[in-house]
């Protein structure tokens, strides 16, 4: 039990380091392609957390759908990769202030939360999805499919011009 705890802690620390470092690189990388790539890493790190929290299905879903969407990002970053990204200094400091404040506030708010994760199987989630949240599922999948098709057609039309 003790050993398992240590392993879990280790994985958590690694994943947390990876995720936060990648997130920092998303906003600080000079090139959009790297930014998008690190966003994929943020998504992957997040997937690790989800698995550890007891949501393996969501973790894999995140990995396939969300990290897969990062491909789109990278692709379109490449097409628009002509001009360097400018950061306005004053806005930067303001933004930093806001970000630090927000983080501190959130941390303070979360302090009171207690509890330990439990494992959730995909059967429970899928039964919920098919049962109680059926309508939301249909809407979400429709939205996903239509927007993807739309994105493709738009991109293709752009090429055909």
């Amino acid at each position: 039990m003790f050993q398992a705890n240590i392993v879990e802690g280790l994985i958590f620390t690694l994943a947390a380091a990876l995720t936060i470092a990648s997130a920092a690189l998303v906003v600080s990388a000079k090139s959009l392609v790297y930014s998008a790539f690190f966003l994929a890493l943020v998504g992957a790190g997040n997937a690790v957390f989800m698995a550890m929290l007891g949501f393996p299905v969501i973790s894999l879903f995140q990995l396939s759908v969300y990290v897969g969407a990062a491909v789109t990002f990278i692709l379109f970053s490449i097409t628009m990769f002509r001009k360097p990204v400018r950061i306005e200094p004053t806005a930067g400091i303001l933004a930093l202030d806001a970000a630090v404040l927000a983080t501190a506030g959130l941390l303070y708010a979360f302090q009171s939360v207690t509890g330990t994760p439990v494992s959730v199987g995909f059967k429970e989630i899928s039964s919920l999805l098919i049962g109680k949240y059926r309508f939301a599922l249909i809407i979400a999948s429709l939205a996903l499919v239509t927007t993807l098709i739309e994105a493709i057609t738009l991109a293709m039309r752009g090429e055909m011009k």
């Binding site: 790539f37 994929a40 393996p56 299905v57 894999l60 879903f61 990995l63 396939s64 990290v67 897969g68």
Partner: peptide, 17 residues
């Protein structure tokens, strides 16, 4: 795992990046 198929598929989608 109960989800081994999903795991394999999810990992397959990473390569194109």
């Amino acid at each position: 795992s109960e989800l081994s198929l999903l795991a394999v598929l999810a990992l397959l989608t990473l390569a194109p990046i």
